[in-house]
Amino acid sequence: MLDVKAISAGYGDMKVLDCVSLTVESGEAVSLVGSNGAGKTTLLRAISGLVPVWSGSIVFDGQDLGALPAHKLPALGIAHIPQGRGVLTQLTVKDNLLLGGYVPAARERRPETMKMVYDLFPVLREKESQLGGSLSGGQQQMLAIARALMSHPKLLILDEPSLGLAPIMVEAVFEIIKTISGQGVSLLLVEQNLAEALAVSTRAYVLETGRVVLHGASDELANNEHVRTAYLGI
């Protein structure tokens, strides 16, 4: 479904990604792990067209993303929740959700999707007329996920969904991610919390200084000597 082939990318003269390849099959949950500065966020941003790709190709559902401006990607079924959640703080919860269904195909189904999303996150219904910025961190993450669901994504890209959340919220967020994955939405997940990331995904890639150094089934990686010493500290 998503086929990233040997891409290099960076900012200015600085190369961040060096010949990175990655695939996400339909319905699959893939996590991307690695230490700070390894290039995980840059890789996600390159896929979403927010960072220009220097070489290599990114194909989604048979379509070359390199030829498309970034704002055309959501209509293809890609939803990207950026690091820091990307909640529009000056807009109400409801307006945030309505914009989640901004792309034409999603707009037609918006009322029913809205109801579905409110049933999944009752707290958002309660707070629908409050500003996005007034929500707690955990609620903002819920809103970000709910907003992404409004577009009926085929591929959901999540960048550090647990960042800055209380442990109990982290658990809740990963419960929801599991549910979404169970409904057949493909996932590409970047997460510092390695244990949670490997538990929710079927496959994982390990990124170090802009290169993929390891990839394989998540449960195998969880037992890999290098991963255990480098990232789990055991």
């Binding site: 067209g49 959501p74 901004y102 907003r147």
Partner: peptide, 15 residues
């Protein structure tokens, strides 16, 4: 309004 607050978030929403 979304664009006013964040061009990047707007882009990610298909705007």
């Amino acid at each position: 309004r979304a664009t006013a607050e964040s061009r990047e978030v707007a882009t990610l929403l298909g705007i």
